[in-house]
Design a protein around this nucleic acid. Structure first.
Length: 833
RNA sequence: GCCCCCGUAGCCCAACUGGCAGAGGCAGCCGACUUAAAAUCGGCACAGCGCGGGUUCGAACCCCGCCGGGGGCACCA
């Protein structure tokens, strides 16, 4: 071991630098955004807020690194940037931790928040620390309750009994969105069905708008997310058709997207678990009733397990009842089956086995007739095989046959014709259906927002008056939080027992809590007025800042959270509280951080701890690695990237600032032109690259600039050249987006303060024009020569120069020239005969 | 089954949206400095763009068809 010749101060050491600047930033708070009299134009950059389960992990590190690049860039571009953070702090993990360790969920949550907050500060996130919110605090969920009440008043929050998704492990209901592959999103338990009366938000009222407004986000949101939202809403157009039922006064309505195939209906199917099926079975004989009852029982217990299996054989029960086809008076047997869903359309269908695969499968299983009413052809114009024989339904467009007045028509015409016919006859009409269901928000859990409703025997559901909000959670102490099918709040007798706000009589509080997605559906508005006590947010502040200009977060929320936030935004708009209908004008989805090809997990043994990476390579190197790894949407495999390489680069950049040997404020105009050109080209390009999220390329360009500057110092203009200072300052400013500590230290060595607030340097356009450009000379598309030409060269002049080149002449030889393509100043292509 | 996205050096990734396949980095190799090493500085090599057709003067880029990988939805009538 020998002494290093350099002193500490002359050597890049991330630990020293982090220790130096963290307290300074803590003191200066450069990212406070609510200052009085700030006339800069506004930008709202939002990172999805974290759930406080443990410390920050690599995924957070990526998300916040990328969000920070955007926020910091807009600050340097002269915007008043709002970049807040908070915690999505209600939810099952806190409750489960509480059950497991016997601690208070509130304490557990607050501890984790404190730890994450401190990690965020170390990570140099450019958050405005004056605007922090936490959804588990009464001053936040107060306004969940207030908004709930407004939705209730408008009929957008309502209670209904229905078959709900039930997680037997967590002992709570789940939204459709929280059921993944038939399993509970949280605990992976198979989900079953249960009939319960629950609270819903009427998202379906906005189905059309939620779908149509996606158009306005095209280009600003990832196509993938738009497609997923479109899919989820699942609008389908078709017709409702009424079938008279023998022995029943009322007809049954069915929904179909193919009313043109009405003549091909050979039976009807109702959802086995629907009220309609039960009612129809009631009118059948004893044997049928018994068979039906047994079938329904088997469907209920096994449905979600079996639904996972594809190509499951069709099952069902003939109800011994008949419907009448309105177009031809035929008697159609009515079956009950689980392949028809109770909560889509009318829970009943007409079955056209020839032209619907599911109906055909059922028909073949039950030996029901198949009637072809479409003449379908393959690409060669040959008729397709008879579905009854082949087992393959012909679901294409085809031409109608065996269909009375529709014969000879194509699909679209036939649909129009039959819809008009049904309409005239009063037995049907065009109709629209959605895959989207209303949002079930009731949860039988403790750690959430109490639903602000009082149940009164005399008055029914009575909302808690605004002046009695918030309805705060009773202390967890003494309550058994273990899942038991009923909310733990029900056991808080003193809390539950109350009086009716309307009649003053004895009444009970609703004991369910809200889905935590309610919390995150409007939090972006609460940031604008975190301390406000007389409303959820200030309308004027919303006008000033919202909607969010740039939202950054994981694609895991592509459906749930974004759809709900969009719904809330539209509802709040209709209440007159905001004047826009879409919450997030632009969306960036970062990828995941993997290790060795798969998601990190302790059990898999491939967990990379953020804190350890930060200790080993420093905050800056980790952040830079996140940005440099590739396009932000791509997953990063931590095994493929090199935080050590990033650290090395940062040291190299840092040494530029150390080596600069000219005074601050030196006019760069007299500096080395070649280096200046590189600097200005980099600054010019970087802006566009950042604004199109190509951060990896920005870093690469910055590396080039560092290399060019190093070269200028060592073997060119020298450390005292003004261009070297200009370049080093540009490096510091660009690097501040990715590596704030290193950049701040460089900036300080260069004689300045607060690199985060430094103005993005003006690009000197004159330095961007190149003296000469290389023109490639092709013959028949192959490169044969090159020319150095002025960028403004004319087409004709360039053609002549190119034709005269040695390479071109040799390649052309004796051939006649047919055409010469000239794209001045970069290319000439000679086409020979 | 349906719908999206992606295949460029050993690896991560660029390519002015149709014009010289290579910017940057990792790993590798060589050299300078060093007694030696680390650090640093300088240099080098490596793919013909998943495959096959088509359009074009010209295709990594556009079109068609395959192959491979990833993701979403999935009995929604």
């Amino acid at each position: 071991m020998t002494e290093t010749p350099e002193t500490d101060a002359a050597r890049y050491d991330f630990r020293t630098i982090e220790d130096r600047w963290l307290p300074v930033w803590e003191e200066r708070q450069p990212f406070r955004s609510g200052k009085e009299g700030d006339s800069r134009p506004t930008k709202y950059v939002l990172d999805m807020f974290p759930y406080p389960s443990g410390d920050l992990h690599m995924g957070h590190a990526e998300a916040y690194a990328l969000g920070d690049v955007i926020a910091r860039h807009w600050v340097q571009k002269g915007f008043n940037v709002l970049h807040p953070i908070g915690w999505d702090s209600f939810g099952l993990p806190a409750e489960n931790a509480a059950i497991k360790r016997g601690v208070d969920p509130a304490g557990w949550t607050e501890d984790n928040i404190a730890q994450q907050l401190s990690s965020m500060k170390r990570y140099a996130c450019s958050f405005d620390w004056d605007r922090v919110l936490m959804t588990h605090r009464p001053d936040y969920y107060h306004w969940n309750q207030w908004i709930f009440t407004r939705l209730f008043e408008r009929g957008l929050a309502y209670r209904k009994p229905s078959q709900v998704n039930w997680c037997p492990f967590d002992q709570t209901v789940l939204a459709n969105e929280q059921v993944v592959d038939g399993r509970c999103e949280r605990c992976d338990t198979l989900v079953t069905k249960k009939k319960l009366t629950q609270w819903y938000f009427k998202v379906t009222d906005y189905a059309d708008e939620l779908l149509d407004d996606l158009e306005t986000l095209r280009g600003a949101w990832p196509d993938k997310v738009l497609a997923m939202q479109r899919n989820w809403i699942g609008r389908s157009r078709g017709a409702d058709v009424e079938f008279a039922i023998e022995g029943r006064d009322e007809p049954i309505a069915i929904y179909t997207t193919r009313p043109d195939t009405l003549h091909g209906a050979t039976f009807m199917v109702v959802a086995a678990d629907s009220d309609l099926a039960a009612e129809l079975a009631e009118g059948a004989d004893d044997a049928t009733r018994a068979e039906f009852a047994a079938y329904v029982e088997s469907v209920k217990t096994a449905s979600d397990i079996d639904r996972l299996a594809t190509d499951r054989p069709k099952t069902g029960v003939f109800l011994q009842r008949y419907g009448i086809n309105p177009v031809n008076g035929e008697r159609l047997p009515i079956w009950a089956s689980d392949y028809v869903l109770a909560d889509y359309g009318h829970g009943a269908i007409m079955a056209v086995p020839a032209h619907d695969q599911r109906d055909l499968d059922f028909a073949r299983a039950m030996d029901l007739p198949v009637r072809v009413v479409l003449d379908c052809r393959d690409d060669a114009g040959e008729p397709l095989a008879d579905p009854a024989e082949s087992g393959v339904a012909t679901t294409g467009d085809g031409v109608l046959i065996n269909s009375g007045s529709l014969d000879g028509l194509a699909k679209a015409e036939a649909i129009a014709a039959i819809t008009a016919e049904l309409d005239a006859a009063g037995s049907g009409h065009a109709s629209v259906n959605y895959r989207l269901r209303d949002w079930l928000i009731s949860r039988q859990r403790y750690w959430g927002t109490p639903i602000p409703i009082i149940h009164c025997d005399a008055c029914g559901e009575v909302p808690v008056p605004d002046d009695q909000l918030p309805v705060t959670l009773p202390p967890a102490e003494g309550l058994d939080l273990k899942p038991k099918g009923q909310s733990p709040l029900a056991a808080a007798t003193d809390w539950v027992t109350t009086t009716c706000p309307r009649c003053g009589g004895a009444a009970l509080r609703d004991t369910d809590t809200m889905d935590t997605f309610v919390d995150s559906s409007w939090y972006f508005l609460r940031y604008l007025s975190v301390g406000k006590t007389d409303g959820p947010f200030d309308v004027e502040e919303a006008k000033r800042w919202a909607p969010v200009d740039q939202y950054v977060g994981g694609v895991t929320h592509a459906i749930l959270h974004l759809l709900y936030a969009r719904f809330f935004t539209k509802a709040l708009r209709d209440m007159g509280m905001i004047d826009f209908g879409e919450p997030f004008s632009a969306l960036l989805n970062q990828g995941m951080v993997l290790m060795d090809g798969s998601a990190m997990s302790k059990s898999r043994g491939n967990l990379v701890r953020l804190s350890e990476q930060l200790d080993e390579y420093g905050v800056d190197a980790v952040r830079l690695t996140m940005a440099f790894a590739g396009p932000p949407e791509d997953d990063i495999d931590w095994a493929d990237v090199s935080p050590a390489g990033s650290a090395k680069f940062l040291a190299r950049a840092w040494r530029l600032a150390r080596d600069v040997d000219s005074a601050p404020g030196t006019d760069p105009a007299t500096g080395d032109v070649a280096l200046r050109a590189v600097t200005h080209r980099t600054l010019h390009e970087a802006q566009e690259l950042i604004e199109s999220f190509r951060f990896n390329v920005v870093v690469a360009r910055t590396m080039e600039l560092v290399n060019a500057t190093r070269k200028a110092i060592d073997s060119g203009a020298g450390a005292a050249d003004p261009a070297v200072r200009e370049a080093a300052e540009a490096v510091a400013i660009l690097l501040s987006l990715f590596a704030p500590y290193c950049a701040e230290d460089m900036w300080s060595m260069l004689g300045h303060e607060d690199v985060a607030l430094a103005t993005y340097p003006a690009v000197d356009e004159s330095l961007l024009v190149e003296e000469t450009v290389t023109c490639i000379v092709q013959v028949m598309g192959k490169v044969r020569d090159r020319l150095e030409v002025p960028p403004g060269i004319g087409q004709d002049e360039l053609r002549e120069l190119a034709l005269a080149t040695e390479g071109a002449r040799r390649a052309i030889g004796d051939s006649a020239i047919r055409t010469v393509i000239v794209k001045a100043p970069r290319l000439v292509n000679v086409v020979t005969a």
